[in-house]
Structure formats: structure tokens, C-alpha cells
Amino acid sequence: MPHDETALYRRLRQMPPPRICPWLWVFDFDGTLVNLEAHPNQVKVPQPLLNDLLQLTQLPGHTVAIISGRTIDDLRTYLGSIPLLWMAGDHGAEVLGPDWHWIHGNAAALTRQFTQLAQELSRQLSELPGVYVEAKRYSLGIHYRLADDETTRILKRMLATMPMPSGMAFKHSHLCVEIRPVPGPTKADAMAIIRNQVQSPDIGSLALVFGDDQTDEDMFQAAYREDVTVWIGTDARTTAAEFQMDSPHRVAALIRWALAGT
């Protein structure tokens, strides 16, 4: 079981300060920085959180990255007011930083196929109440957060017999089934790319990694021994994260704590 917030704050106080070893803050978005909503379009980012993230990116020795299943364009609608922010979308298929841009080759090659598959699945699943298909550029998501138990069972039976196009595979996340490129990127790949871009070879960096979903476990597992990994949630589950916080509200409080100590 991960350690609680008290242990987390104790660990942070023991870490080398950013002026000696830079800190790389890595956040998932939905369920980590903002509350999960019934539909992704219903998410709202509190203005105080935007202000704090902006301030954090401007501090010497601090880099902030958002690594999400959302597209880069979607993330920019919420976070575009923070110019120094690093963002990775589609679970690492695309990475965008200040004056830097990268797209995973396999994902880019399947853009047209993902668009066609999203249209086809939207037609096939239109009769299932509470199920909707989220079309992305380099992946797609089949959400069933609003579906009842019987509809969820029907959906999973349909997907189990659905032929998967070449170069794509299912990946299960929280109340959602993702279809992604294979071999393809992970959030851990995106974290490594960003880390290599921002850290000095002579000094390195310490990563503080926050996530709430099964798709974030890749980042927890890839973290260095000196890094800090934090799972966001209240239910009992197995996680590779070392620490646990209850909610995005508590994550926001930790960011304010870090700013107050600078």
C-alpha cells in the first residue's frame, strides 16, 4: 500500500532543493489536476490552479509537464495560457514544449485509420445508452462512464469479438477502453522524452509524478528510485506509486505548499 500524505510531505522536505537538483513535476490531467466528470467536455480548471501552475513554471529549477490521454489541442484549450508548460497528448503519441514538438512515428502513420475507425464505432455503438466514442488524432477512446451495468456488459462483449485493425490494440483505463497504436508510445515514454529535453546531463533531475489511472502506472514503474510517485484516489488498489493523495484538491494544495516554500 502507498504511504499517506504525511509521509509524502516528509519526503519532499528531504529532497535536494531545485536550485541544486531541478524538479520535474509530471501530472496526469483528468482525475489528477481536475475532477473526473461525466463527459470530458464538462471539465473545468479552477483559475487559482492555473495561476499556481503558471507561477510554478516560472520558478528557477522547476519544470511542469502534463501527460494525458487527451489530445494536445484539447489540453491547450484548458492550459494554453501557460507558455512554459510541457504537454504530452494521446498517452505520449505527441509531445509539445517551448519551441519543441515531437510525434511518434507509428501514431502519425495511423491518423487516417483512427479517424475512420472512430466514425465506424460511433455508428456501431450509437444504440448503447451512455456510451460514446471520443475521436482523437493518434488514438480513440470508448467511454462508458454514463452506461449502466447491463450496457457495459454488452459493450465489452461487442469489443471482445471486434476485429482490430493492423497496428492497433485495446488498452483499458478508468471506465474507458482506449484503442492505440502498437508498437506505440506510453506515458512513460513521454516522461522520458521530456526529461531528456529539460535536464542537464551533469545534474539530472528529480521527477514528482502524479496520476490516478491505470495508464499512469507506466510512469510510476519507469520512475527512478530517487523520484516521487503519487497515486490520486481513495479506493484500495494495487499501484506502483510510493505515495497516495485523495483528490485533485489535495494535489492543488501541495502545489500551493511548494510555492509558499520558494
Results as ranks from 00 to 15, higher is better:
Asn196Thr: 13
Ser139Ala: 15
Ala118Lys: 07
Tyr224Val: 00
Leu206Gln: 11
Gln124His: 09
Thr71Gly: 15
Asp202Thr: 13
Thr234Cys: 11
Gly130Cys: 08
Asp216Ala: 13
Asp30Glu: 10
Gly61Gln: 10
Arg225Phe: 08
Met162Pro: 04
Ser139Val: 10
Met191Arg: 04
Ser247Arg: 09
Leu206Glu: 07
Val95Lys: 02
Ala7Cys: 09
Asn196Cys: 10
Val228Ser: 00
Asn196Pro: 08
Thr151Val: 15
Ser139Tyr: 06
Thr234Ala: 08
Thr57Gln: 03
Pro165Ala: 08
Pro165Arg: 09
Ile82His: 05
Thr234Gly: 14
Gly80Met: 00
Gln55Glu: 15
Tyr78Asp: 04
Leu146Val: 02
Gln124Gly: 08
Trp86Ala: 09
Arg195Met: 04
His101Ala: 10
Asp148Ala: 08
Arg157Tyr: 01
Ala241Arg: 01
Met87His: 06
Arg237Asn: 01
Leu175Tyr: 06
Pro16Asn: 01
Lys187Ser: 11
Val182Tyr: 07
His174Glu: 09
Ala160Tyr: 02
Thr262Gln: 13
Leu84Ile: 05
Thr115Ile: 03
Asp74Thr: 14
Ile194Asp: 13
Leu85Lys: 07
Leu206Phe: 03
Ile179Met: 15
Tyr9Phe: 14
Gly80Ser: 01
Arg153Ser: 14
Ala207Thr: 06
Pro46Ser: 05
Gly141Cys: 05
Val133Ala: 07
